[in-house]
Every structure is written in structure tokens, then in C-alpha cells.
Amino acid sequence: MSIVENFDLYAPRLADKEEYFSAGHRACQGCGEALAIRLMCKALGKDTVIINATGCMEVISSLYPTTAWKLPWLHVAFPNSASVGSGVEAGLKVLRRKGRIPDRDVKAVSIGGDGGTVDIGIQALSGAMERGHDLLYVCFDNEAYMNTGIQRSGATPFGASTSTDPVGSVSFGKKAWKKNVAEIMVAHNVPYVATACHSYPIDFMNKVKKARKIKGPSYIHCLSVCPTGWRLLPELAIKAGRLAVETGIFPLYEVDNGQYRMTIRQERLRPVEDYLKLQGRFRHLDPEEIELFQERVNQEYKKLMSKIECLPSWSDL
């Protein structure tokens, strides 16, 4: 057993007891995203500024005059949490340099849902990552525009029924495949990119801590189960997240300085059907469509494994 794995056994007890994202917010029962945010904040600690894109998390947490945030928090609009974050980072850096704020490291962390990240916010995200700000961006991907009523996004998976790409007599839901933003971020030569899921809390928090330490841009794509939008019982949210990983649909890995590493390894992948059958959004898929889904997952998983096995770190090149 490696030291890191050994550490993981004790890690739950070592997690920050402080709650930075307090109870009493208005998220739905079983919301994976609210849980993921709570975990992220614990891993980040108090010297953090959160920049939140418009979406579920902004709506449920900031109903004036209340707030769930015990960290400094800033919301501006839907597509720009990465560019607002760029400004916060630049502002903090300059003011620190000029001695106008205390001389200590405060991390700017931009967050957004899948719509605010992979669709309307991708330009701002790409720009911020290219410019190399000392900025962590975390995408909480619940695979559709849940805040506005479950409309299809670029992160909605193949075959899912949404309110704008619904199943019908001549349609089985979404025909395109999910956009892989983690890989797009790797292509930006970002020093640290990871995928995560709240169903693996220690793995997620470790990744947040690692990204927190990077002096430069970093990106975490966190699959966040949405029982409301996925047509799933709230008590199955954690299980659904685990199944997304165990089926290989959403593998948990990190790309540290170009080096791929699977952080949650699977001996054998479970069939995708185990994951799909839990959720109402996939209920209509016939065996042929499920087979197509399975083939694609196998192919993507193989692609990822070949990167894990073949690609050395950039510093070794």
C-alpha cells in the first residue's frame, strides 16, 4: 500500500471540520453539486475567493439577504466566471505586490455548471487558461441546464432525454456525444487537469488540494449527480456517481504536467446498462442504442488507457 493510499484511510478524519458552504441553502434533495461544493470548500480552506457563474448553485445559495457562503463570493453572469476570476486573480496579485492587502496567498477559484463551462462559458474559460492566470476552475457537470429546467447542453450524454432534445416517436433523445472539456483543457497545456465525482469525496478533495497548490491555471471537471434532472431517486445520487465511474463512463483521472494517471482504478468495467437503468432520462433506450453507448464507452476508455500507459510527463520529454 502506497503512502498516499494509506493517507486516504485517515483522510476523512483529517478533512477540515469548518463548514464554508453552510446548511440551509435551497438545493434539491440529493443534490450532488451542493455536496461537491461543500467538499471543495473544505479542501480549499479559508484563503479562497469563489467566483460563481449563474446557475443552480448561485440561485440556491445567495437569495438576498441570505447567503450560504462563508468564503468571499462573487457572482456576475452566466458565461464569465473564468474571466471575472481572471480579474480577481490579477487584482489580488497587484494589490498584494503594492502592499495594499495582506501579503499572503489567496486563491481565486472560478466555478460553473456544465452550461456555464462547456457551452456559453467556454470562450472565457479557454482565454483564462491560455493566459495562465493563477486560477482554479471547477466545473460541476450535471449534464444539462438543470437550473432552467433540464435543457440539453454540450455535456449532456448520448441518448439522454432532456426538455429541449426529448425522446419522441422519431427521436431517442440526444444524438451527439458528450463534449470532453477535460481533454480540451489538457490541450491548453494546463499544468493540472483532473476529473472527479462527489461519490469519491477523498479523491475529489485531494485533487482540489493539489490544484490549489499549483501556481498557475488548473481545471477540475466534477461529475455532479442531479436527481431532479436525471430522473433518479435522491437516495441513489451517490450510487449513480459511483456507477458512472465503475462502468468507465466517467473515469477518474488526473493529468499532472502532461502525465496521465488513473486515480480510481477499476479491475473490470461494469456494463453501462447498470448505470443507465437507474435513471429515467435513459429509460427509453433500446438494446441496440445501449450497445452503441457501450461501444463508445469502451473506445473512449481504451483511448484514455493508452494515454495513461504511453504518455510521459512533459518534464520528461
Binding site: 460563481n52 462573487l74 457572482h75 489567496v106
Partner: peptide
Amino acid sequence: VHPDRVVSMGTL
């Protein structure tokens, strides 16, 4: 927005 004096800006 600074941790020494925590505020939420841009609320609903």
C-alpha cells in the same frame, strides 16, 4: 472579495 472580511457579492 477578500477572506479577511467575507462578503457575498452579486446575490439573487
